[in-house]
Simulated scan of single mutants.
Amino acid sequence: MDRTTEKDSKYTGLENMPLSELLRNINNEDKTVAGVVEKAFEQIEDLATIVTEKMRIGGRLFYIGAGTSGRLGVVDASECPPTFGVPFDRVVGIIAGGDGAIRKAVEFAEDDTQQAWKDLTAFNINETDVVVGIAASGTTPYVIGGLQMANEHNIATGCIVCNSGSPVAAEAQYPVEVVTGPEFITGSTRMKAGTAQKLVLNMLSTSVMIQLGLIKGNKMVDMQLSNDKLIDRGTRMVMAETKVDYKTAAKLLKEYGSVRNAVEAHSKR
C-alpha cells in the first residue's frame, strides 16, 4: 500500500517561512483538493445510491472513524437534523473513544478492532442500514474491524479514505478513495485529507437528503426552526411561496412548525 498521506511534505523550513508565504503555500495545497475529489465522482455516486436506497426503506446511515475523521463524521451527522428535519437517529456519527474524543484525543482508541462493532450494536444496527468508515490513512483498526463485522452481518459498507489500495477500502463494498497526497505538514491529515473528507461528506449527505425529498427547489423546507435567524429565513420562504405578508407568514410558520407544512396548509385554504 502506498501511503501518500504520510510522505514528506514538498515544503521544508516551515519555521523560517514568512507568514504570507505560509498562508499562500497552505492555500496552494488546498486548491488541489477539489480536483482529486472530482476524480472519485463515480465512487461517490455509487455510495450515495446505496445509502439512498437503504434510507428509503427506513434504514440509517452510520459513520465510524477515529480522530479528525471521526469528528468529521460526527459533524456531518449532527448537521442533518437541523438542515433537513430528519430525526437525530437517522444519520449517526460514532467516534473511537466515545463522545469525549470529539474534544480530547483518547489514547489508542483507534487501535481496538472490536470496539466499533460494539458501538454499532448499541444502536441495534441491521441489514437496512449502511456503515461508512472514514479514515484518512485507510489503515485505522477501529474502522477496519467495524466494516468487517458489518459485512459479516450483511450490512452495506462504504468508506472515505485518502490513500489508494488501503485495508479500509478493501473491506468496503462501496469505497471512495480521494488521494490527496503529502500534507503541507508531513502526516497532518487534518489538513488536505480532512478537507477532502468533508467535501465528500457534504456531497454524500446532501445528495441523499435531496433524493429523499427533503429539499424543495433549492430550499431547506424541513429545517428545524431553532433560532431567530432560521425563523426569519423560514418566514421569508413562506412569503415567497404563498405571497402573503411577513406577519401572516410568521404566524403560519409558528402554527405549522415547518416551511413545508405552512405552505401546504396555506394552499389548502
Rank of each mutant, 00 (worst) to 15 (best):
T12I: 02
T12V: 03
E15L: 01
S20P: 00
S20M: 04
E21N: 01
E21R: 09
N25G: 00
N27M: 11
N28A: 14
V33S: 13
V33R: 11
A34K: 07
A40Y: 03
E45C: 09
D46Y: 03
L47F: 08
A48R: 07
A48C: 07
I57Q: 11
Y63I: 04
G65F: 00
G65E: 05
G65I: 07
A66M: 05
G67H: 02
G67E: 03
S69P: 00
L72S: 11
L72P: 03
D76W: 04
A77K: 11
S78V: 14
E79P: 00
C80L: 10
C80E: 12
C80Q: 13
T83H: 06
V86D: 05
V92L: 12
A96K: 13
A105S: 12
F108Q: 15
F108G: 06
A109C: 05
D111L: 03
Q114R: 15
D119I: 00
D119G: 00
A122D: 10
I125D: 08
G138M: 09
G145H: 10
G145V: 09
Q148W: 02
Q148S: 10
M149F: 00
I155T: 07
T157K: 13
C159S: 15
C159I: 12
I160A: 02
N163H: 04
S166A: 05
S166L: 02
Q173R: 15
V176W: 03
V176H: 05
P182F: 11
T186N: 08
G187I: 11
M191A: 08
K192N: 15
A193E: 12
A193D: 11
G194M: 09
L199Q: 15
N202Y: 01
N202R: 02
L204A: 02
S205A: 01
T206K: 08
S207Y: 01
L212P: 00
G217W: 01
K219R: 15
M220G: 05
D222R: 12
L225V: 09
S226K: 12
N227S: 09
L230M: 15
L230K: 13
T235E: 09
T235A: 04
V238K: 13
T242V: 06
K247T: 09
A250V: 04
Y256D: 09
S258F: 02
S258R: 10
R260Y: 05
N261E: 15
A265M: 12
K268L: 13
R269P: 00
